[in-house]
Design a binder for these strands. Structure first.
Lengths: 343, 343
DNA sequence: CTGTTAGCGCTTTCAA
DNA sequence: TTGAAAGCGCTAACAG
């Protein structure tokens, strides 16, 4: 592997100066004033040799590695949550950092091993991400390093980056109200454990709060609420069918996520109801299927990329306190909402 | 950050031996015979101090980092292709390696910078992955290091890991034949550039070949082939509509991927045709929507996890020649195929 | 303004 | 069977 990298010593030699000088020039140290000439010579030599510092050697001295660990339960592979990585990657590159990635797979032992391996590498910081927003318990070993939570909270007071689900809930409900909906608005996706156990989800509760707040402000109440064991298409489908089995059918339905909405669309189609002419639909997440559905589904987008970016910014700019940053969820308007059909 | 890691020197001191001895014991060097006692003492000391070697220091000496770079055009964030990362992650961990991840975003400049940063880190090998199977051009700088192509080929004769699309095509067609289909089988997703330009795709051509081979073997011919500008739901929808506009309608349709099939389902539903009673549907990829669709879509699964695993195995066990390994695509049988409706 | 020197933590000859 | 010492490439006191 003809891999003959020039070292700092090579540069210094070619420049006819000492390693110290070369190092200082190359690192642009502020305090010391080097002669303009030395500057030139070193830079020229470095350029000529295609010099690139060896990060391992440097980190041995500085205890910095320009490396950030991105540890997740399973996010790397989760459908669209991979966008969090993309955002983190972008921000990391902008700061000349690199991302070490790891997945705990929810397995304790794997997690322990992984964390050790990461810690050994002397990463400058850790981003601990959850695929679905929830409260996590951070392994104590990790608290040794600067850590930022991504799409997660913990009881350790660690800084964390979260989507603003409450406002999203409000916005989603508002989009219905704005079209004139006041009655027969149903909700699909109630789920006790998601709403009450942070360890399961921290998205459901605020979304619900936001929705209720917007509705209440107009004196409107949900006409029906369907519980779902989980937020998968099949559950949305069943939920919608049961809602449909008790006429009059809803004129609008709010789904707790897009997969549920997918199922809702199918139940509606099966019942011969059309979106949005007969029933309007809104949802959360804005994952790919929202745009695949016909008509396109209006949905509040999880700002995954932005969240990823923020997590590394937070890590690198080292905010003092364990503050939690919340990122707005924009609702992506498509064609699934219309004014309520006049009966 | 009270991060007081024990060093090899600490271990040696506690054991009352030299660093050399400690190092040898800890690395289980074969040639040298150390006394059983020295062995014991060192191990005990290491255990007691919770010693973990510093990889940076080690790599400075050995030029090995136990790190693999995973560079992709955009895979990290692609819907389900993230599974390739998951597989790579698993295999890497099994070999006590760690994954450095990067994304070029298809941008030349970003790519150059990224590669340099990675190369600086002295990674032991590089996995260069493409989101959608295609021929890539590998930056020359990268050939410096051991590289394995994942879901991609190149003209450099690099080893590569690919899904077996040809067999998948055969299997998909067979699943129709096996149910008795002989006539009115249509294909959705013909696309010149995907079929003829490896730089666009290397999946289309073999899939097609496999399909034709299976069909030809039974003397069956496609009754219709719809071209699609791209393999998105909307294109599948349009393609199916055009197929339906020329009766008799197909009794079975093969879609080049699941997103097309999604569109096909919708066109079918709109036309009042039911799957699989009136029309059977088969497809490729087996991404999440295949299972969300109703009825469940039978689809040949891209073995992303397995491919990711293999890429690192190949890298680490350093196969001599630039061989290309192909991984079988299993067809996941669901409910979208039935015997052809008797006319 | 620039050079000498001493390590960072580890592996690896080479001697003892 | 073990240890002393050199050195990987870099940075940072401290002199000069």
């Amino acid at each position: 592997m003809g891999d003959d990298r020039a070292t700092l010593a090579d540069v210094a030699r070619l420049a006819g100066l000492s390693k110290t000088t070369a190092s200082m020039v190359l690192n642009g140290r502020k305090g010391t004033r080097l002669s303009a000439e030395a500057h030139e010579r070193v830079l020229a030599a470095a350029e000529k040799l295609g010099y690139r510092p060896n990060p391992a050697a440097r980190s041995l001295r500085t205890n910095k590695t320009a490396t950030i660990a991105f540890i997740s339960d399973i996010v790397a592979t989760a459908p669209y949550a991979g966008d969090m990585i993309r955002g983190a990657l972008e921000a990391a590159r902008e700061h000349d950092h690199v991302l070490l990635i790891a997945e705990t797979q929810g397995d304790e032992e794997v997690e322990r091993l992984t964390i050790e391996a990461i810690l050994d590498r002397q990463v400058d910081g850790i981003i601990y991400a959850a695929m679905a927003a929830r409260e996590v318990v951070v392994p104590r070993r990790m608290l040794t390093r600067t850590t930022v939570l991504l799409n997660a909270t913990s009881t350790d007071g660690l800084p964390s980056v979260l989507p603003d689900d409450e406002r999203a809930g409000h916005a989603v409900a508002m989009s219905l109200l704005r079209h004139g909906h006041r009655d027969r608005i149903a909700l699909v996706g109630r789920n006790d454990s998601k709403e009450c156990e942070p360890r399961m989800s921290i998205a459901a509760a605020p979304r619900l709060r936001g929705i209720r707040r917007a509705l209440a402000h107009q004196g409107v109440r949900l006409s029906g609420e369907a519980s779902c064991e989980d937020w998968q298409p099949e559950h949305g489908y069943e939920a919608m069918r049961s809602l449909l089995s008790r006429p009059p059918h809803p004129l609008a339905v709010i789904c707790m996520n897009d997969r549920l909405a997918f199922g809702v669309y199918e139940a509606l189609a099966e019942a011969g109801l059309s979106v949005p002419a007969d029933v309007s639909v809104v949802s959360f997440d804005d994952d790919a299927i929202a745009s695949w559905l016909r008509p396109g589904l209006t949905s509040a987008a999880l700002p995954h990329i932005e969240m990823g970016r923020l997590a590394v910014e937070l890590l690198l700019t080292g905010e003092p306190e364990g503050q939690t940053v919340t990122v707005p969820m924009l609702v992506n308007h498509r064609s699934s909402i219309a004014a309520p059909a006049t009966a």
